[in-house]
């Protein structure tokens, strides 16, 4: 257990962010049922501690490369709930004017480089962003988020090697939720100790309880510090998604008991109970944080509902540089 839970202020900020993601995504699931959101929707519910603890370890000049399960990362990074929700509604007020949807959130202002839905596709790009920082003498770190499923792709191994070989400032943040769609880790990897893979590249690696946001935050801060001073680092956050892979997934491959066992370790009540026990949080304060999160989400829904559609004449904009809006 990490000690800095004593820092009640940090802990409350992390709790607040986890609640923001949770309420945002629960609402997304409802909106999917109402056909307001379409396409693929991958929920992060259960995994919030990882994005919250890790993204909060980054500075404003650092960069993020994420996957299609990235609403939480975007929210914590500072992309507004309004812009994300409007994007999922396919509205022009969305962060990508409705072109990307749930899987492709991008935001230049916060150096949020997507939203990549090709498994492993973001990893070489993270290496290149780090190379650009290095070549231009900037102190930035690039955080690459990816699932354990991506570890089987050639892109993972090639990117790890290149980053280690050139000692580039990449934090490889692996979100190990133990399933890649329906395929359990042990059914897809001969070596299930993911840190051993990093060791093969001579890269420092740590395994962290991804359900404990304080532990995540501490490990991520340490990793970012190390990366900024030298070469790449690999961190495996062990976590679990409570929901199906996407809204199309009948979720036939997991035991209900397994899901329930992980839910008992849920990152939100895990932290709030500890804070209450330490006298740093009252139930009333918790409810206030929760209400605040819900309010933000409802405002985002209203914003998206009131949004407009990108004109069809602008369909071909932003394919290459040229014509302006």
């Amino acid at each position: 257990m990490s000690e800095n839970i004593d820092n009640g202020e940090t802990a409350l900020a992390l709790l607040r962010d986890m609640l923001r993601i949770r309420r945002f995504e629960e609402r997304c699931a409802e909106l999917y049922g109402e056909s307001k959101i379409r396409g693929f929707l991958h929920l992060y519910i259960g995994e919030e501690a990882v994005a919250v603890g890790a993204v909060r370890a980054l500075g404003p000049d650092d960069a993020i490369v994420a996957t299609y399960r990235e609403h939480g990362h975007a929210l914590v990074r500072g992309v507004s709930a309004n812009a994300i929700m409007a994007e999922m509604y396919g509205r022009r007020e969305g962060c990508c004017r409705g072109r990307g949807g749930s899987m492709h959130l991008f935001d230049a202002a916060t150096r949020f480089y997507g939203g990549n839905a090709i498994v492993g596709g973001g990893l070489p790009i993270a290496v290149g962003l780090a190379l650009a920082d290095r070549l231009q003498g900037r102190a930035g770190v690039t955080a690459a988020f990816f699932g354990e499923g991506a570890v089987a792709e050639g892109a993972f191994h090639e990117s790890m090697n290149l980053a280690a070989l050139w000692r580039l400032p990449v934090a490889f943040f692996c979100e190990n939720n133990f399933y890649a769609m329906g395929t359990a880790l042990a059914r897809s990897e001969s070596q299930t100790d993911l840190c051993a893979k990093a060791a093969a590249f001579g890269m420092p690696a740590t395994k962290v309880d991804g359900m404990d946001v304080m532990a995540v935050h501490e490990a991520a801060r340490e990793a970012v510090r190390q990366v900024r001073g030298g070469g790449p680092v690999f961190v495996e956050f062990q976590t679990y998604r409570y929901r199906a892979h996407s809204m199309f997934d009948p979720d036939l491959y997991r035991d209900r008991a397994e899901i329930e066992a992980w839910k008992k370790r849920g990152p939100i009540h895990n932290l709030s109970n500890r804070l209450k026990a330490l006298g740093k949080l009252t139930e009333a304060q918790f409810l206030a944080l929760d209400a605040e999160a819900t309010k933000e989400v409802e405002a985002a829904v209203a914003f998206a509902e009131a949004g407009s559609l990108e004109p069809i004449e602008d369909l071909a904009l932003d394919v290459v540089a040229g014509r302006k809006r």
Binding site: R38, G39, G98, R99, G100, H104, L309, E310, L315
Partner: peptide
């Protein structure tokens, strides 16, 4: 059309 296929239904 010569664009990456966009998400929004109308597009």
């Amino acid at each position: 059309e010569e664009v990456p296929i966009p998400y929004a239904k109308h597009l």
